[in-house]
Amino acid sequence: MTPWLAFVKKECLQVIRKPSASLLPIFFSLMVTSLFPMVLNLSEQQLQQVAPAVLIMILLLSALMTTEGLFQADFDDGTTALLFASPHSNYLLYGTKVLVSWFSSGFMLSVFAPVLGFILHMPQHSVLTLFVAFALGSLNLIFLGAVGAALTVTLRNTGMLLIFIILPMNVPVLVLLAAILNASNQGLAVVSNYLALLGALTLMTTFLTPWVISAALKINLESQ
């Protein structure tokens, strides 16, 4: 088994041991989404109009909750130090770690995204769009959030701080998601173009941030 595969296996095992990490974002989203129709008292038409905003906020919050403390356990038990003192590329390792974490939370949530859309009366043709937009959007948001998590790894109770430092960086993703979901509501063909744009942005984030993440963890490690 190659070292990389061993790492993937370890990360996956840890995720499997803690299924709540995957299930909580889904329950959270379902609950919050169903709260909106309850408190807003809107017609189906109106609900459909506010749906993109609601869904984006939910995605944003669940992505931030996923990333908070993403590196803390590894850092505290000495795994981070061992990874740095291993002959393997930390860029690759942290990219992998965040990807596994995305798959277990963001991707799982994306599978449920059409259900959320259904609750808010999004049109039926938006099922696939919702899934793809949520998958790409959460991938992007989790990688950006991971930068914040790595920077604050030695601090405790970082939830608010994390939101504070990372939220402005999330704006392009939020804007694109809003454009996608609104266009999907209106049944515009331009949706696929926007999705492609989001894909490009996500690709860039995915390739650039692991480098920042490992640099941030390194400076925290060195100052211990």
């Binding site: 070292p3 061993a6 790492f7 370890k10 041991r17 505290d76 000495g78 795994t79 130090a81």
Partner: peptide, 25 residues
């Protein structure tokens, strides 16, 4: 290196930890 922080994962079994040590390092 073995320091104060042991670098073992508490939510994995003993065997799984060892398998990771063997395959990764």
């Amino acid at each position: 290196y073995l320091g104060h922080q042991l670098g073992v994962k508490s939510n994995l079994t003993v065997y799984e930890n060892m398998a990771f040590f063997r395959d990764f390092f």
